[in-house]
Design a protein around this nucleic acid. Structure first.
Length: 282
DNA sequence: AGCTGACCCTGTAAGC
DNA sequence: TGCTTACAGGGTCAGC
């Protein structure tokens, strides 16, 4: 559920509070939350102790806190991760709790345990400084240096369905199932079409649509269907009221009135308008 | 080599 | 009523 706009809402909330703070205590409550930190929970805890947080950054769905020793605390929210500021929440989904030097707790809560924290070195990739685990992630559409035409060129070479490519974070990052469906609807493209069969213009418009829909969602605090996705204060966004196709099976297409259709796709669902976004012939 | 699909996980809700 | 099954889905990787 947290895609780029939701992660950016969290990053902004963290930036405002944690920049300049140092960490005075850390406790890992669930080993799965640090499974990507190969040196283990004890190493992560020891290295975070007394570290100073110099800032925050994000690429796609990854966010990280930069630390004064030139490393970064990489955070991925997975499906249900929350970064909460304030008192340590009383929930059995608490995975990690850190205490800041101003007495605030920074807690990682994650019901489905797909998310986690890891410490990593920063590396230079294509003119950007990112943590090593983020090195393979492409720039996202909200990155000032996002190269739309270069991504179009990559997509034109793909013998694969366009929706699958939109979800491939090494092609373009930040887009998940919700914003993929919304972008395809805006661009009037069926996600089952092969990327190689779309024109450069269509692919360019699709990437523009992805940038637009994520910017709009960010302006509304993100999308949420339940209490799983929240900002650092535990509040939900309300972009779900602005969704045109996602989760709207059998409801009328806001553009043409045709009933929205739902199909199985990659162990999840795709929503589309069968008239605005006709299926490719097979 | 490029691509596909199964898997990890838990809470909620629908179905029998 | 209570149990079983389906579903939500980001990222990884075995295997085709």
């Amino acid at each position: 559920m947290p895609e780029l706009p939701e992660v950016e809402v969290v990053r902004r909330g963290l930036q405002a509070h944690v920049a300049g703070r140092s960490i005075s205590a850390v406790r890992v409550h669930h080993p799965r939350a640090v499974r990507r930190h190969e040196a283990g929970a004890a190493d992560l805890t020891a290295r975070l102790l007394d570290a100073q947080i110099t800032g925050t950054d994000r690429r796609g769905k990854y966010l990280w806190l930069t630390l004064n020793d030139e490393t970064a605390l990489v955070v991925h929210l997975g499906m249900s991760g929350q970064m909460l500021l304030g008192p340590v929440p009383n929930t059995n989904h608490l995975r990690i709790a850190a205490l800041l030097d101003d007495g605030t707790a920074l807690s990682f809560v994650d019901q489905r345990t797909f998310g986690g924290w890891q410490l990593a070195d920063l590396v230079d990739v294509d003119g950007a400084r990112v943590p090593e685990p983020v090195a393979h992630i492409a720039r996202d559409p909200l990155d000032p240096r996002f190269d739309r035409d270069a991504v179009v060129t990559v997509l034109r070479r793909k013998h694969s369905e366009i929706k699958r490519q939109l979800l491939d974070q090494t092609v373009v990052s930040g887009i998940g199932n919700i914003y993929a469906d919304e972008s395809l609807w805006r661009a009037k493209i069926n996600g089952a079409r092969l990327a190689e069969n779309l024109t450069r213009r269509q692919l360019g418009e699709l990437l523009d649509a992805a940038g637009e829909v994520m910017r709009e969602a960010l302006g509304q605090g993100g999308t949420s269907f339940d209490s799983l996705y929240v900002n650092v204060n535990g509040q939900s966004g309300y972009f779900d009221r602005s969704l045109n196709v996602y989760g709207r099976e059998d409801l009328p297409c806001p553009r043409c009135g045709t009933a929205i259709r739902r199909e199985k796709f990659m162990n999840r669902s795709s929503f589309y308008c069968p008239k605005c976004q006709p299926r490719p012939r097979r």
